[in-house]
Amino acid sequence: MKRIILTILLAVTTLSFLACGRQGKLAGTIKIDGSSTVYPITQAVAEEFNKQNPNVNITVGISGTGGGFKKFVNGEIDINDASRSIKTEELAKAKANGIDFIELEVAYDGIVVVVNKDNNWAYDITTQELKKIWDKDSKVVYWSDVRPEWPKEKIKLYGPGTDSGTFDYFTSEINGEEKRIRADYTASEDDNVLVQGVAGDKYAMGFFGHSYYEENKDVLKVLKINGVEPTTENIRNGKYKPLSRPLYIYVNKKSLERPEIKSFVKFYLEKAKDLVEDVGYVPLEDKKYQEQLNKIK
């Protein structure tokens, strides 16, 4: 009888351990959307996280910072990738819908101005000249309208769409007002489309996040802004003015209560330094990452 009881107890204990093991495995779905600039970082983190947690389904969209916030403040996604901080009107909608969140910095980025690789006349440009080209009331049609020694060839312009945080930041810093821009440029929320546009036209110019230039420097040429090159060091120390900025993820606090979300966000911040650099961005200082980790504790 004792032997039978012992056997039953051992069997129950084994089943309990197995059950605990199954419960310990993360599963669930994480919905992420937002900035195409932050996308490469988040996608890299998601891929590494999935290697350890294959039962967690992670979707990462690129509807732009503004497009992501529209979903985030309605509670449709768990995390929004953002290349700018949340706006007042977005914050008001979040509060109205009962969405509480945490803002976390994940990297630094520089917005680059690029031209075609075969462009052999432009190597640097001033912020005043950028405003002259991109402003809503711009009269610039030809390269020679910017500098007379540049060719009298039409500039074909490429840039992010209006839902992009990069668009908001660039127009604010260069044109002096958010969303103020000429209407006759080719817009896309997908930075790869912009890369292809500039790479395919000798007389093109575009702007987007630094990492997309790093990935495509064989077909693009980057311009210095006010004499400063957008190197990693110049972006980190703020010398690359005014187009250096922090990048964020916004996390729904209610979502953060789910173990798969909390584990993912912790993993993100713990691995960000290496992964951010791998995909061409500038990592935060160690102290700053620790500050972000403290927020989710």
Rank of each mutant, 00 (worst) to 15 (best):
residue 1 M to H: 11
residue 4 I to F: 15
residue 8 I to P: 00
residue 13 T to K: 08
residue 13 T to V: 14
residue 15 L to R: 04
residue 18 L to V: 13
residue 22 R to S: 11
residue 24 G to R: 15
residue 25 K to M: 10
residue 25 K to T: 07
residue 26 L to F: 08
residue 30 I to C: 03
residue 36 S to Y: 11
residue 48 E to N: 08
residue 50 N to E: 12
residue 53 N to W: 07
residue 55 N to Y: 12
residue 56 V to M: 03
residue 60 V to R: 01
residue 61 G to A: 10
residue 67 G to C: 04
residue 68 G to A: 00
residue 71 K to V: 04
residue 73 V to K: 01
residue 74 N to S: 13
residue 78 D to F: 00
residue 81 D to S: 12
residue 83 S to F: 01
residue 84 R to Q: 00
residue 87 K to T: 11
residue 88 T to E: 14
residue 92 A to W: 08
residue 93 K to P: 01
residue 93 K to E: 12
residue 94 A to C: 05
residue 95 K to T: 10
residue 97 N to W: 12
residue 97 N to D: 13
residue 99 I to Q: 10
residue 99 I to C: 10
residue 100 D to L: 06
residue 105 E to F: 10
residue 108 Y to W: 14
residue 111 I to W: 00
residue 116 N to I: 09
residue 116 N to Y: 09
residue 119 N to Y: 02
residue 120 N to K: 14
residue 122 A to T: 12
residue 124 D to S: 14
residue 124 D to P: 00
residue 129 E to G: 02
residue 131 K to P: 01
residue 132 K to S: 02
residue 132 K to F: 02
residue 138 S to T: 08
residue 141 V to F: 12
residue 142 Y to I: 09
residue 150 W to G: 05
residue 152 K to I: 03
residue 153 E to G: 01
residue 156 K to Y: 12
residue 161 G to F: 05
residue 171 T to V: 11
residue 180 R to M: 13
residue 182 R to C: 02
residue 184 D to E: 15
residue 184 D to W: 15
residue 188 S to E: 11
residue 188 S to L: 13
residue 189 E to W: 04
residue 193 V to Q: 14
residue 195 V to N: 12
residue 199 A to W: 10
residue 200 G to D: 13
residue 205 M to T: 07
residue 209 G to T: 04
residue 211 S to K: 13
residue 212 Y to F: 07
residue 217 K to P: 02
residue 218 D to T: 06
residue 220 L to K: 07
residue 221 K to T: 08
residue 222 V to I: 08
residue 223 L to S: 02
residue 224 K to Q: 04
residue 225 I to T: 12
residue 225 I to K: 06
residue 228 V to S: 06
residue 231 T to R: 01
residue 232 T to E: 05
residue 234 N to A: 12
residue 235 I to A: 05
residue 236 R to Q: 08
residue 236 R to W: 05
residue 239 K to T: 09
residue 240 Y to T: 10
residue 244 S to M: 05
residue 245 R to F: 02
residue 245 R to K: 09
residue 248 Y to Q: 04
residue 251 V to N: 02
residue 254 K to L: 13
residue 256 L to Y: 10
residue 258 R to E: 05
residue 263 S to E: 14
residue 266 K to A: 08
residue 270 E to H: 04
residue 271 K to P: 02
residue 273 K to E: 13
residue 273 K to F: 03
residue 280 G to W: 05
residue 287 K to E: 10
residue 289 Y to V: 04
residue 292 Q to D: 07
residue 292 Q to N: 10
residue 297 K to E: 06
